[in-house]
Write a protein that binds this DNA or RNA. Structure first.
Length: 492
RNA sequence: CGGGGUGUAGCGUAGCCCGGUUAUCGCGCCACGUUUGGGACGUGGAGGCCGCAGGUUCGAAUCCUGCCACCCCGACCA
């Protein structure tokens, strides 16, 4: 039996399988559609967490934590939200096991331990958080309330896929309450911009900021902002979302405040989140056939030093050199690992670090000790050069920046060449099949047209780009008038 | 839930149609030796309720029945 991390597209499955399994990031666990994040993969997630957390706090947000379980009565309070998630909820119905009289040594659910009210395992936390917010808000002086939580959520999807759609995933979810609509909308936009900046500057993944159409919108939201990225196989990936929730949740959970005129009003809300799906985006944006390629900002260690030696004496000498080099690099804020395992040969280490995407490898051997040099190898370009020890730190620092920029530029070039303007539906279908990527086309604004295009081509409207210019045209499908182009693509 | 497929060592597999010694091979693992500037080589070794239960048979990985799990295609989807 194969435990492959397969997909609908064979080409992709091969590529993904290689990367994820061999890259030592994760493997399928015995639990349906869940993933084990191995230490190396988790270290990447921690880097992402740290940077996002910093950005959230700089914009006035605070972390808190809310329960995993949501009583069904709370869950169903906001109808649209409940309806949107109802089909993918794990539900706790009992609280005790007992010895199974028919099956010695086995346990069964104690039928007497049925819960009065079922508990929904959170697929998202709006319900429990808004129920709590009710007690936190009385006056406009209590606003805005800017809360973020780092948590796991469960969505019982029919089909799961490692990183992109696991049954349980880690994420952060921000939930905010504001006294005015304008402020809430501004918050939703701001968080989307933070996501875009994080994706581009930190992860080196170019993204398009846009608005979702009504049918792609979050259940319970008035407006959904998103960042959309393009993967190397030409499919789009929603990498993050930020929702303006209007007063829907405030009304559902009765969260009112007294404004400065002493009048009661419902608060305005936002919610926003990014998840371990971003790690999927990272893999699918930068990796190559040799494994992961990590941008220096995200690498658990930016440099690995590999010693090359023939005997103990050489090993000691090279280790001393490596320690010195490591200290001087570390003093400049560069993260370094000295791979001094004596159980693996150099070639094996080279291959393994390439698989793990370490941005720069430094090899030190007897020849280098003699000439006062080291060998520098870049993961992204797979090029090598011999560098003098004297200005190593400076060279490495510059190189790390260069790698970070060059990864972004490469991904940006790929995306730019994969946004195609089309005017006819024939063109639309051809581009989708032959070239793939985003298609920029006019759309009449109706859900009906959107549905039909999806049915025929499997492409969906990824977003209405925020920066798109108004331009008169006719819908690529219906021929009805349209005022601006939207982006279509096949998506994960 | 509908359609198709697969379960043999940590992983990947041969054997199954046509039942018959001690279940095949590769990777990985362990020991020793030689090696070490791109995933080393040699020799030796460990590791299996052949998915589970029942049946047919002198004899079942192989045939039959039931069950379970997983994978792929569809509805769903951050």
């Amino acid at each position: 039996m194969s435990k492959n991390l397969t997909s609908r597209s064979e080409d992709y499955s091969k590529w993904y399988n290689e990367l994820v399994v061999k890259a030592d990031l994760a493997e399928n666990s015995a639990v349906r559609g869940c993933m084990v994040i191995k230490p190396y993969g988790y270290a990447i997630w921690e880097k992402m967490q740290a940077e996002l957390d910093r950005m959230f706090k700089e914009t006035g947000h605070q972390n808190a934590y809310f329960p995993l379980f949501v009583p069904k009565s709370l869950f169903e309070a906001e109808e649209k939200n409940a309806e949107g998630f109802a089909k993918e909820c794990a539900v706790v119905t009992h609280y005790r096991l007992q010895n199974d009289p028919d099956n010695p040594g086995k346990l069964r659910v104690d039928p007497k331990a049925k819960l009065e009210e079922e508990l929904v395992v959170r697929p998202t936390s709006e319900a429990i958080i808004w129920n709590t917010f009710k007690g936190w808000v009385q006056s406009y002086r209590d606003l805005p309330l800017l809360i973020n939580q780092w948590a796991n959520v469960v969505r019982w999807e029919m089909r799961t896929r490692l990183f992109l759609r696991t049954a349980e995933f880690l994420w952060q979810e921000g939930h905010t309450a504001h006294s005015t609509k304008e402020e809430a909308v501004a918050e939703a936009k701001q968080m989307n911009e933070i996501y875009a900046s994080f994706a581009e500057n930190f992860m080196a993944i170019p993204v398009i900021q846009g608005l979702k159409t009504e049918s792609e919108r979050f259940a319970g939201a008035e407006e959904t902002y998103c960042i959309e990225a393009l993967m190397q196989d030409g499919k789009a990936l929603q990498a993050g979302t930020s929702h303006f929730l209007g007063q829907n949740f405030a009304k559902a959970f009765d969260v009112k405040f007294a404004n400065s005129d002493g009048k009661q009003d419902y608060v305005w809300a936002t919610s926003w989140g990014v998840s371990t799906r971003l790690m999927g985006a990272l893999i699918m944006t930068h990796s190559d056939d040799k494994g992961l390629v990590l941008p220096p900002n995200l690498a658990p260690y930016q440099i690995v030093i590999v010693p090359i030696y023939k005997n103990d004496e050489q090993f000691i000498e090279i280790s001393n050199q490596a320690e010195t080099t490591m200290q001087s690099l570390r003093s400049q804020g560069i993260t370094v690992k000295f791979d001094n395992r004596t159980t693996q040969r150099p070639g094996h280490k080279f291959a393994q670090h390439e698989l793990q995407g370490v941005p720069i490898r430094i090899a030190i051997g007897p020849k280098d000790i003699e000439s006062g040099t080291v060998e520098l190898a870049r993961r992204d370009t797979l090029t090598k050069e011999v560098v003098a020890l004297d200005n190593l730190t400076k060279t490495v620092k510059r190189l790390l920046e260069e790698i970070q920029n060059s990864l972004f530029q490469k991904a940006l070039d790929f995306r730019s060449s994969h946004i195609t303007k089309v005017e006819t539906f024939e063109e639309f279908k051809t581009v989708l099949e032959v070239k793939t990527g985003f298609i920029s086309a006019h759309w009449d604004g109706s859900a009906e047209t959107e549905d039909k295009i999806k049915e025929i081509t499997k492409a969906t409207i990824r977003c209405i780009p925020l920066d798109s210019e108004l331009e008169n045209g006719v819908c690529v499908f219906s021929g009805k008038p349209s005022k601006q182009r939207v982006l279509f693509a096949k998506a994960y």
